[in-house]
């Protein structure tokens, strides 16, 4: 690996990887594409390439530039922090292997979240949405509530899949109905409602969650493009969850109207 900071033009060698990165200093600044030639090493991933740029921030024209800003954390596709658009599709930079990508590799920040800088976006809305639908199970109390209820193994198996969600936002990015014009809550929060509603203790708050999903921006704004389930890196059956919660909200809506 060369750490040579000389400003002489870096000639791409066959062992260089070309990256074209969409950059911006943040909201209010215009964005531009910058090209980088990065020395290849075996089993390199996109995060590794970004680290190379950080060490030696020289662009493809050989000019000194600012290092590209990005986020990462777990480096094993469980935190979601490094989610960005790689060659047109949202995915995690840590699990994106250079060998498996067509070059030049284009990196861009997610478009459905407010931009912070370069490849960093603010995914806070993902967590706000979980709060909106109360995607937790209330077990705190002032006294011992006794042992938890038994959960049938089939339910455990199904909900385990849903529990893998890392709030990365890939599903929201892929969804045509999540955008600046719509208030749609997006697939992830709906799957988490499915998760906690499937739990016997969680189900005690089922109706509050369904109510939250029946307002503006709720589940009915899903238009069944079904990109989310295909895009989710964790293989979460999002469209199944959405349909399951659709059934819960439909039944709940009709029943509560008849009981009013």
């Amino acid at each position: 690996m060369s750490n040579d900071k000389s400003s002489s033009i870096i000639k791409p060698t066959s062992k260089d990887v070309t990256f074209i990165i969409k950059r911006s200093n943040g909201p209010g600044f215009s964005s531009y594409w910058e090209e980088f030639q990065i020395p290849y090493y075996p089993n390199m991933n996109v995060v590794g390439a970004l680290m190379e740029i950080q060490k030696n921030p020289v662009n493809g024209k050989g000019e000194q530039t600012t290092p590209v800003t990005w986020e990462c954390n777990c480096l094993e596709e469980v935190c979601g922090a490094c989610t960005m658009i790689i060659n047109g599709k949202a995915r995690q930079a840590c699990s994106a292997l250079v060998d498996k990508l067509t070059q030049p590799i284009r990196l861009a920040p997610l478009t459905k979240f407010p931009l912070v800088k370069d490849l960093v976006v603010d995914r806070r809305v993902m967590f706000d949405n979980l709060r909106k639908v109360k995607a937790w199970i209330k077990i705190d109390g002032t006294y011992d509530m006794g042992p938890g209820p038994k959960i049938p193994p089939q339910v455990q198996e199904y909900t385990y899949e849903l529990s893998k969600c890392m709030t990365c936002g890939t599903c929201a990015e892929s969804c045509p109905n999540v955008n600046e014009k719509s208030k749609f809550i997006g697939p992830a929060a709906i799957a988490q409602v499915d998760l906690v509603n499937s739990h016997p203790t969680g189900a005690l708050m089922k109706e509050e969650r369904l109510e939250a999903l029946m307002g503006e921006g709720g589940i009915a704004e899903c238009g069944n493009a079904q990109n989310c389930a295909k895009a989710c890196p964790k293989g979460i059956p999002l469209t199944r969850s959405i349909a399951r919660v659709n059934r819960q909200t439909s039944v709940y809506g009709i029943r509560s109207w008849l009981n009013r």
Binding site: K89, K181, N224, Q226
Partner: peptide, 17 residues
């Protein structure tokens, strides 16, 4: 309310959508 993205996400269902 929709912002279509069939060129990046070329799945069949997305096209139908």
């Amino acid at each position: 309310l929709t912002k279509n993205n069939v060129l990046s996400y070329t799945y069949f269902r997305n096209w139908l959508f």
